[in-house]
Write a protein that binds this DNA or RNA. Sequence first.
DNA 1: CCTACCGATCGGTAGG
DNA 2: CCTACCGATCGGTAGG
Lengths: 212, 212
Amino acid sequence: MVTIQVARKKRDSYQHGDLREALVQAGLKLLSEGGVTALSLRAAAQLAGVSHAAPYRHFRDKEALVAAIAERGFRLLTASMREELARIRAADPRARLIALGVGYLRFALESPAYLQVIFGGVMRGDHVPPELGVAGAEAYQTLRDEVAAGIASGQLRRKDVDQVSLACWSMVHGLSTLLINGAIPHPGPAAARAMIEGLLRSLGEGLYTPTK
Amino acid sequence: MVTIQVARKKRDSYQHGDLREALVQAGLKLLSEGGVTALSLRAAAQLAGVSHAAPYRHFRDKEALVAAIAERGFRLLTASMREELARIRAADPRARLIALGVGYLRFALESPAYLQVIFGGVMRGDHVPPELGVAGAEAYQTLRDEVAAGIASGQLRRKDVDQVSLACWSMVHGLSTLLINGAIPHPGPAAARAMIEGLLRSLGEGLYTPTK
DNA sequence: CCTACCGATCGGTAGG
DNA sequence: CCTACCGATCGGTAGG
């Protein structure tokens, strides 16, 4: 009796051990291959190798899966920016801001589906889970901290931290989405790096000819 | 017999006279109210008051409707930018670039669904109709012309027209999408104008403290 | 975590 | 431009 129960338990439980994680990955794959319309709980379940009712044990509804993907996206975005920061190991605020941009763009080009979920209108404003808000705030704070340091060091002329952060964010995010959506021909990794460096240098030095 | 035919023709034909246009509007309404997943040919047909088979007389498939909406979006975007240009009637390149940004952002906030279709991943790279490409190129050219004039007048320091255009476009587009997706609290029309003016001034003058 | 089922909706076509 | 129909898929629930 006991042995039978153990055997059944083994067969019944999800082999990979973490169905929730498998569903997030499956959802991501659906998104990158078929766009937002291809994302469904049922298809994700099939990709993960479980019945289409199984996901409801981990996600209350489809929206919850989308939110989980978005949260993961924010965390990976933050990680990508921090990796670039760690790589350069420079204290110069200008170099650090460029590193943030490189990290942002690299993440966008490597896993465009994440950005599509976060900023592509899949997330309806319904009810945003608190963990998602936290993850988003953390990503923004990563940028904001560097901007604040740049202002403190005197290298950034404007003093409104959020205004300057928004300028950087808008430019890097704008380039990322334009590239992702094919509005601009896709560059390779190296060209992408040169692209973002050029844009951020323009933003730093200004487009206008100095008035003597 | 003739009168009957006339009567039937009148009853059978689409009342508004332009079903194609009605379907574009219906698709747009679906998008703005329910997001990308709410857009379907059948729902659009219902909104337009026709049977769900009727749209196929005007659009080969769903993709064709999406492309038509996107094309319309590009044209309205171009028109919005040109309206702002006409409004200021100034020759100063800096003022004109800001006007372009104001027009872009105004359009984005007034009809976010268009931008969602154009840049939100609904358009899959499958086969882009030539009219859509033309409309997109026209929007970009509107910006590029002003940048070229600014370079010619000597007010813009960098000489690469496309690089400078991309910088402006990325920043304005980035701010627009961040606002549309609720990443940043929605401002009113006046605050939005101040926002884009502030960002473009930052881009123009540069974020860095001038060396000496 | 599964099978079986619900009502609804979808894109698309046949045939008129 | 319509009715009627096709096969497929969807979100979600019941019940175990």
